[in-house]
Structures are given as C-alpha cells and as structure tokens.
C-alpha cells in the first residue's frame, strides 16, 4: 500500500467527526468562524484545510444544527456567530455515545486501550 493511501481512512474519519467537534465547541459558547477554526486548530491533526470548515458550517446551518447571527465587532465588519440548536445538541449527544463505544472497540482491538496506557483521561 502506498503511504498516501494509508492516510485516506483518517481523512474520511476526520471528515465524519469534525462536525461533531464543531458542535461540541459551540456548547460552551457562541463563536464566529475564525475563532471556531482556531479552536479546532488547537487540537492537533483535527483540521488539515481550515477552509473546508466553512462549507461544513454552511451544511450544519442548513441541517438546522446551528443557527447564525450577525454581530458587530469592535473593529471591522460584522461577524457571523454560530450557536448550537436543540437538534444540534441532540445529534452531538447521539454521536458522543456512539463515538465512545467505537473508540473503545478500536482501542481494544489495536491494543492501545486504557489497560495498555496509564488510563488517565483528562477532561
């Protein structure tokens, strides 16, 4: 297998989970695009092309998972702030449960689960 192909499953996985990461960030506070992208960027390996977050946000808005409001900024043009909706919260809750199960299963098979590491979960 080519090294480039080996990256593919992670790209797919990233694409699938990133919207839930966005939802999770929005549960704490409303954020505007740039801020949101920066927060996601703080977690290593989560976002490769920051620009792809914008189509994602647009899709989430159309799906009713987030709402947007324009707000004045201290300097410069108004910004579009994103807030999570009830149905977004619903989607996030469902995903969180499934993700934990999925992650544990993969960790278990790969032998990288809690039993193999120090097991201390932060957060």
């Amino acid at each position: 297998m080519e090294p480039g192909e080996a990256q593919n499953p992670l790209t797919q996985l990233r694409r699938g989970v990133i919207e839930y990461c966005v939802l999770a960030l929005l549960t704490a506070e409303e954020l505007y695009g740039f801020d949101l992208v920066r927060r996601l960027g703080e977690s290593e390996g989560l976002v490769t092309s920051e620009g792809t977050i914008y189509p994602l946000l647009s899709r989430m808005r159309r799906a009713g998972w987030v709402t947007t409001t324009w707000r004045e900024s201290e300097s410069g043009p108004p910004r579009r702030y994103y807030a999570i909706t009830r149905s977004g919260q619903h989607a996030l809750d469902g995903f969180t449960t499934e993700w934990q199960r999925f992650r544990d299963s993969v960790d278990g098979v790969l032998g990288t689960g809690e039993g193999h590491r120090d097991g201390a979960h932060r957060g």
Binding site: R15, G41, S49, E50, G51, Y54, P55, L56
Partner: peptide, 17 residues
C-alpha cells in the same frame, strides 16, 4: 496555506446536500 487549496474547499462543499 492553512485555508487550503480552493479546489479542496469546494470539493468539501460539494459533498453535501
């Protein structure tokens, strides 16, 4: 660079809907 290639961004947009 971090924003990414325009084609890649549009490809992400075309995924949906």
């Amino acid at each position: 660079d971090r924003l990414g290639d325009p084609d890649e961004i549009v490809a992400a947009a075309r995924d949906d809907g």
